[in-house]
Simulated assay, not measured.
Amino acid sequence: MDSSSDNGLLDLSRKELKKIEKLSPEKSKTINNLILDQNELQRLDNLDTYLHIQNLSICNNFLVRMHGVARLTNLRVLSLNNNGILQIEGLKEMLFLKVLKLAGNNIKSIEHLNHNIQLEHLDLSNNQISFIADISYLKNLKISPLSLDTFRVGP
């Protein structure tokens, strides 16, 4: 890994990465923020070696699935904008997640957020959403670029 990490930040943007490198347990403890924007990532293999990160950005890649984030239980901010993600998944154990950015993907429905009651910001703009399940349990949600009037809201 040739990118510097200062103040817990590891910025691997624009490195033409096709895969995420494994991180040693010692190095893992020093990384709080990981940026993997504008690469060529299609999968999230080895992401679970970054267990201590709180902020993760993997925007403008080629991801279709996001389940690889499932073991990152310390995440507070997750940005996966402008990929090809088809559905929201892998967030069940992220009890502290406050910001979720999934704009510009291929998501068709809003679901699987039942455990993310700390969410304050949810950006699902520029997706293919036609149905929103009941999200009234997201009581901390402050900002949403979605206009709920344009969707059919479920029971």
Rank of each mutant, 00 (worst) to 15 (best):
D2R: 07
S3P: 00
S5C: 11
D6R: 14
N7Y: 12
L9Y: 10
L10K: 14
D11H: 10
S13G: 00
S13L: 06
R14I: 08
R14Y: 12
R14C: 09
E16V: 04
K18L: 00
K19T: 15
K19P: 07
K19N: 15
I20H: 14
I20V: 04
E21T: 10
K22I: 04
L23S: 07
L23P: 08
S24R: 12
P25Y: 07
E26L: 05
E26V: 07
E26Y: 11
K27T: 05
K27E: 09
S28A: 15
S28N: 13
K29T: 08
T30R: 09
I31G: 02
N32C: 05
L34C: 02
I35A: 11
I35T: 08
L36N: 14
N39A: 11
N39G: 08
E40C: 13
Q42R: 15
Q42V: 06
R43T: 15
D45P: 03
D45A: 10
N46V: 09
N46E: 10
D48A: 00
D48K: 04
D48R: 01
Y50C: 01
L51C: 01
L51Q: 04
I53Q: 03
Q54N: 07
I58V: 15
C59V: 02
C59A: 11
C59T: 00
N60F: 11
L63E: 09
V64S: 15
V64M: 13
V64L: 01
R65H: 12
M66F: 02
M66R: 05
G68Y: 12
V69N: 03
A70I: 05
A70H: 06
R71Y: 05
L72N: 01
L72I: 07
T73M: 00
N74C: 09
L75D: 01
R76G: 00
V77P: 02
V77K: 06
L80N: 06
N83F: 08
I85M: 07
I85A: 00
Q87C: 07
Q87P: 04
Q87I: 05
E89F: 08
G90A: 11
G90I: 03
K92I: 03
E93A: 14
E93H: 05
M94R: 02
L95K: 15
L95G: 07
F96H: 04
L97Q: 06
K98F: 03
K98A: 02
V99A: 07
V99F: 06
L100P: 06
L102A: 11
L102Q: 00
A103H: 05
N105V: 06
N105R: 06
N106L: 12
N106F: 12
I107P: 00
S109Q: 13
E111K: 15
H115D: 15
N116V: 07
N116R: 11
N116K: 08
I117R: 13
Q118E: 14
L119R: 12
H121P: 02
L124Q: 11
S125R: 15
S125P: 09
N126R: 12
N126G: 02
I129L: 04
I129Q: 09
S130L: 13
F131H: 13
I132S: 09
I132L: 08
A133Y: 12
D134T: 04
K139Q: 11
N140L: 10
K142A: 13
K142C: 05
I143D: 14
S144I: 02
L146D: 00
S147M: 01
S147Y: 03
L148P: 02
D149W: 13
T150D: 14
T150Q: 13
T150V: 04
T150L: 14
G154W: 09
G154V: 00
P155T: 11
